[in-house]
Amino acid sequence: MNETIDIAKKFMEFFYTANSPQKGKVLVVSKYAERTRVNICLLKFFLHEMKQKGIFITIDRPHQYTASLLTIHGISQENLVYIDAVSRISGETEANVSNVRFINGPYEMNFLDDITAISFAGGAVKTKSIDLDEMNFILIDDIAALTKYQEADGVKKMIHSYIDSIERLNNITAPIVLDANQNRAIYEIIMNRCDRFLFINLSKSIFKEMNRPTHLKRKKVLMPKETSFAKPAATGGY
């Protein structure tokens, strides 16, 4: 993985200023086609460079894909636990591994309602005896994929619950990686609830912190029913 920008250095500058870690919810805007690479860069930074502990929630593809990517790129997963909500509906054999907690499907339960509860309910997190309060980061891949399994209201609720859960966890960094064009409604909800904003384009070597994007051009024609999401920014939820 020879990215032309020194991504670790950029992440370092972004996430850690004057050696004091900046926690919170970070919206990372990047192209969907670069999702895998951006996720691996983030995981590499947190796990490998910073030796941190974290949670990786998978909704879009079984966790094994991320696990093999990390192995191939020499990144240790000792400090990573997975919450895998898609393996059981993926047509693939479920791996028998200790650092994964399987959910029946992303449609099934409000599994994002309370990350704290799910993790203590006896899954991997418990067996590996990792205290959630010790977790440094949490990543979700891909939050927009929820729209495949739920109606708009359900998705909206799940996203708010997820962000509420993050806010209850101590000192956790939660990058939420999203393509601005992938789903406008989701993008706006998340944008309104995130603390910081980062734009990454790996193929064009762009990495920059942004202010809260306010000038969204909404594709009204495509999604006429979702105008209700367009509430003023920074209200902290609906």
Partner: peptide, 9 residues
Amino acid sequence: MADEMERLC
């Protein structure tokens, strides 16, 4: 709620 599907040229 699903937007347009992502496509590659």
